[in-house]
């Protein structure tokens, strides 16, 4: 298999993925995918000139986007790690790819959806500040800010202005995670909440969904209100963290022993 053939395969692959409604089932796509994977590893790594590197990058990009398409996040991560080399280390050798920021942005979205905040910020540091204006990058950035702040509605409402269709699936994952966050906050901050408003607060679409959700979190319902038990209980003996206090005291005793 040589260079031209690989390039051809790649074009065909892209076309097929775009045209098919269910690419995972399509035999032809799977076959091409296999060929591309092998080709990119065996043939293009042997000679690292600009032409080969560019093609390898394009192949990885196509597969990464395809992984998002069929919601295979693990495979996306794998190809993103490969691509990172092309985006950052070979930056001076290659011309910038048009998909570069889409994919970097997608990875940021992934980290957000998986609650990997520290990695998110490490990744963000690598992106030059002037590039953070790029819509593909600024979108996950603004989402992260809203989450950190607590403006959950902003995140949900941003669904309509995603910069590319690939971002949609992460927003969906995020919404579920956000509901959990909202529920946790509600438990702490509301005394009680009517069912009607609960539906609105938790961003659910029907009373049935709400009922299910209430059951999964084991909230108690009295009449048409959910009661959260955040009244302070009268203090009793078990409130005293005896074990912790004992540990502390023993530690001091040990250290003092060493000094005296």
């Amino acid at each position: 298999m040589d260079f031209d053939k690989l390039a051809n395969d790649l074009n065909e692959f892209k076309k097929l993925v775009d045209s098919q409604s269910n690419p995972k089932e399509n035999k032809q796509i799977q076959e091409l995918l296999g060929k591309l994977k092998i080709g990119s590893i065996i043939h293009l790594q042997s000679n690292k000139d600009k032409k080969n590197l560019t093609l390898a990058r394009d192949i990885f990009e196509a597969i990464a986007l395809y992984s998002i398409h069929i919601i295979d996040i693990e495979s996306f991560v794998r190809y993103y790690t490969q691509l990172k080399i092309y985006y950052f280390d070979y930056k001076k050798l290659l011309e910038p790819s048009q998909h570069e920021y889409t994919i970097i942005g997608l990875n940021l979205m992934r980290l957000l959806a998986e609650h990997k905040n520290s990695e998110f910020h490490s990744e963000l540091e690598i992106i030059p500040l002037d590039r953070q204006e790029n819509p593909f990058i600024s979108f996950p950035l603004s989402i992260e800010k809203s989450i950190a702040e607590g403006s959950y509605y902003k995140v949900i409402n941003s669904k309509s202005d995603v910069p590319s269709k690939y971002y949609q699936i992460f927003i969906d994952i995020l919404s579920t995670a956000l509901r959990e966050d909202i529920a946790k906050c509600s438990e702490k901050s509301f005394k009680s909440l009517s069912l009607q408003s609960a539906e609105k607060v938790l961003l659910l679409n029907s009373p049935q969904q709400l009922q299910q959700y209430i059951q999964s979190r084991q909230w108690s319902v009295q009449g048409d209100r959910i009661q959260f038990h955040n009244e302070p209980l009268p203090s009793n003996a078990s409130d005293i963290p005896s074990l912790q206090l004992i540990n502390q005291t023993l530690y001091y005793a040990k250290e003092l022993e060493r000094i005296v």
Binding site: E149, G150, S151, Y152, Y153, K154, D181, I182, K184, C185, S186, K188, S189, F190, K191, L193, S194, S197, V201, N230
Partner: peptide, 25 residues
């Protein structure tokens, strides 16, 4: 932002233990 967002922010602040209060939705 709007008051709706503010409510969630307040709820989150309560959860984080920064302020001690309750919300009447």
């Amino acid at each position: 932002g709007n008051p709706q967002d503010m409510m969630f922010i307040v709820a989150k602040t309560i959860k984080d233990g920064v302020i001690d209060a309750t919300i009447n939705f």
